[in-house]
Computed example of a mutant assay.
Amino acid sequence: MPTDNLSLGRRAEPQQQVVKQAIHWLLRLRNNHGNSRLNRQCEAWRAEHHDHELAWQRVQSLQAELSNNLRTVPGAQVAFNTLENSAQGLGRRQALKLLSGALLMGSAAWLAKDTLAWQQWSADYATATGERRGFQLPDGTRIELNTASAVDLDYTKQQRLIKLTRGEIIVTCGGADEGASLNRPLRVQSRHGSYEPFDARFIVREEANCTRLSVTKGRVAIVSPHSADGDSIEVLAGQSYLIDHHQARLAPPLDMDVGAWVDGMIVTRNMRLADFLSEVGRYRHGFLSCASDLADLRLSGVFRLEDTDKLLAVLPQTLPVQLRYRTRWWVTLERAV
């Protein structure tokens, strides 16, 4: 993982291509169990470079974690056994397809988050599920990454570009050399558009079908796309916009504080229980939901994120609900009896 003040371009994790090679070796060894010649070839590949061995250890570790946790998810045991019993004799492509199918069975909610660990290895800055970290960039810009988020940097003589590839970040502009950077403006890019700040603090969050831009200080220009009438948009402090591939539009008020997570909190104001659980679910592994007749219950308050099990345990004190743990990874809220 990168650390504060890490120099640009340095990667503390193996690159994506090396990780793919490690996965390839893993599948070949699984499909040719006991092949001593193939084992020696794999060992030779691992010894070629430190990154090879690092990637191999990470792939082995994640495979073990997925295997152990997958067994705890209801309905996933059949998928796991199918994968184990059918992988023999399959080629790499077929094995990957089978693996993908197994991951979709019974444990989709858990794996949709944790398989993103593969992407962390190729990001300049990244956080795991439940992790929040801050980084100071050389130009004085400060970025805070929320849970399960990833950022790539593209700093050249012509531009300073922060690419949000997953999750949510807070960006605070500034720094001693900002004046020297007037000829290479700072921009933040999500998959739905790009944004240019001016002495600003702002939040960029990728959602399922759009990106939410919220400005808490200064102003941010939405460079692309523009509004429905074609005009450019300048977002001021206190405003939020939703941006998709076609347009940017003013967002309705939220029932939670957009930036409270940086202080390790969720702060709600008359928030639907179903929406609250969806937000809490971003910070923990597994499946978290409530019965349909509880979805529209409302709650307000300040909730600490450092232990989501303790957070959930508070809910029965204020709402007519009870927690049901099917496994550590599968939690539902039901009406209290």
Rank of each mutant, 00 (worst) to 15 (best):
G193T: 04
G193A: 02
G193E: 10
E196P: 00
P197S: 06
I203G: 01
V204K: 01
A208V: 03
A208N: 06
N209T: 06
T211W: 02
S214V: 07
T216M: 08
K217L: 12
G218V: 08
I222C: 11
I222A: 06
S224V: 01
H226N: 11
D229K: 13
G230Y: 03
G230N: 06
S232K: 09
S232M: 02
I233C: 11
V235C: 10
L236A: 13
A237Q: 01
A237V: 04
A237M: 03
Q239M: 08
I243E: 00
H245K: 05
Q247A: 08
P253E: 10
L254H: 07
M256V: 13
D257L: 13
V258Y: 03
W261C: 09
M265V: 01
I266H: 09
T268R: 09
T268L: 06
R269V: 04
N270C: 06
M271G: 01
D275K: 09
F276C: 05
L277H: 07
S278C: 08
S278N: 13
S278Q: 14
V280M: 14
V280S: 09
G281Y: 06
G281S: 13
R282G: 02
R282A: 07
Y283R: 12
Y283I: 04
G286L: 06
F287M: 12
F287A: 04
S289E: 13
C290G: 07
D293H: 15
L294A: 04
D296K: 14
L297W: 03
V302C: 14
V302Y: 12
V302N: 13
F303T: 07
F303A: 10
L305Q: 12
L305Y: 10
D307K: 11
D309F: 12
D309K: 14
L311H: 12
L311T: 15
A313S: 15
A313F: 03
L315M: 08
P316A: 10
L319K: 07
P320N: 04
P320K: 00
P320D: 05
V321I: 10
V321Q: 00
L323Y: 01
L323I: 15
R324G: 00
T327C: 05
W330P: 02
